[in-house]
Computed example of a mutant assay.
Amino acid sequence: MTSPDALEAIAKEAADWRRQIHQQPELLFDLPKTAALVAEKLRAFGCDEVATGIAKSGVVGVIRGRLGAGRTVALRADMDALPMSEQTNLPYASKVPNMMHACGHDGHTAMMLATAKHLAATRDFAGTVVLIFQPAEEGGAGGRVMIEEGMLERFGIDEVYGMHNEPGRPVGSFATKPGPMMAAGDRFMITLNGRGGHAASPHETRDSVLACAHLVTAAQSIASRNTDPFDPVVVSLTHIAAGSPEALNVIPASVTLGGTIRTINPKTREDVEQRFRDIVANTARLFEVEAELDWRPGYPVTVNDPAMTQAAIAAASTVAGEANVDGNCAATMGAEDFSYMLEKRPGAIVWIGNGDSAGLHHPAYDFNDDAIIHGLRYWTTLVGQRLGSAA
């Protein structure tokens, strides 16, 4: 049994790693500094194997237990940041313009490094732990690329677990649920091409702006009138571009608009896509403009395996106490590319409380270092319970 003081010391050290990563955010698959730091730490900890260059910048560490053969359990952390400017004024704020760790992947990586240090030093389990440090979670499907490059088979992974911080949930608490945990997230871009002209003579144009306005309104009818209200669907139009503020007397010839659609049910996902396509085509026909739809399929629904979810709840309850674990939390309409791993192997993802912080993807967000010790205890307890030892 590892002493609490020893874990606290590792967690404190991990906070320094986290802040170092935070100052040098990197995007998608281009993570040379972050990946190098992770690989260096894993080798220094004494991992049995450290593999680099998976999905370009992904890193995998392997630690074998000293208690004999057993299952291979994988733990996953994401490493990439977001293309946005930080507004925290923290002493360790991002040093890279227009890049910041606004989703807490720096914290996820630090907690996993802390776990690696502890497990490599103790090895009080039977079987193997595979530590996955993944690139490109933020829109690049790095998890899918790692799978396509054979990671699951290469390391003989039997089960896989993930963790994500949740602002607003108290530090030291956890949440998860069996079944659908996070939504599928598809994106789209539309170009409406009409005939521009003078704003004083709209009858001589084919007004793409008017068509756009109707399209935005009609798209909202998908969730309000075409789907079961107990079957979650979100349609969000988030981008519109047309014309020029310097030429307000000109009806532009074209408009571009885009957004995202979130669903939980796979059949609903198919139906909503078709309904959206019909609305785009018919709205364009109604206003005599041409529509070009670029449909961009996104991450699938993140589905927790029921048995593995109970394992995650058991570990979290051991660490935090049952009162601080919500084992049937509401699903979120956010999307996660951990979903690809859960399609291939049984596992589960949990939320870990980040306290009263700004929300994810907000310029004032910062991962709460006080959560590191709780994440470390969760990971080590989960390994102990799944592979036959105590943390």
Rank of each mutant, 00 (worst) to 15 (best):
H239D: 02
W379R: 00
C47N: 04
R296A: 02
F155T: 02
N165A: 03
S317A: 04
A316H: 10
T176E: 06
F133P: 05
D5E: 14
T227N: 05
M308L: 13
L387R: 08
M189E: 04
S173V: 06
M341T: 00
L387T: 02
T191V: 04
G61P: 09
G104E: 11
E13I: 05
E336D: 01
H108C: 03
S94M: 02
R123S: 12
A330T: 14
K12R: 10
E290A: 15
T122L: 11
T332H: 08
E153N: 10
F45V: 08
D5C: 04
A348E: 01
M111C: 07
P346D: 08
P135Y: 09
A358D: 15
V303P: 12
Q220L: 02
A51P: 05
N193K: 15
P83C: 07
G353M: 01
N304G: 08
N328H: 10
G53A: 09
P346A: 06
R66P: 00
R345D: 00
N368P: 13
I240N: 04
V160N: 10
I349T: 14
E153Y: 15
W351A: 11
I132Y: 01
L7A: 08
A199Q: 01
R195V: 15
P167K: 07
S201L: 09
S57G: 13
G179T: 14
D80W: 03
V209A: 01
G162L: 11
F287E: 01
Y299C: 09
E159C: 13
Y92F: 09
F230Y: 12
H374K: 11
S236K: 03
E8D: 15
Q87W: 05
P178Q: 13
D356S: 04
A175S: 15
N98V: 04
A391G: 06
I279K: 06
F276A: 09
L28T: 01
E148F: 13
G53C: 12
V319S: 05
C103A: 07
G142S: 14
E40G: 12
D106L: 03
T380R: 14
Q134V: 09
S173A: 13
Q385K: 07
I313Y: 03
P363S: 11
E204M: 15
A335T: 15
E8C: 12
E148A: 08
F338Y: 15
M79H: 04
T380G: 14
A199M: 03
E138N: 08
S339A: 15
F29D: 06
G104C: 10
A116V: 13
N226I: 02
R123P: 08
P266V: 03
V96M: 08
A320Y: 13
V383F: 14
A136Q: 10
G197V: 01
A199N: 06
V38S: 06
E322C: 00
L192Y: 08
S208M: 00
R275A: 01
S57M: 09
A320L: 10
L42S: 11
L90A: 10
G375R: 12
M151R: 12
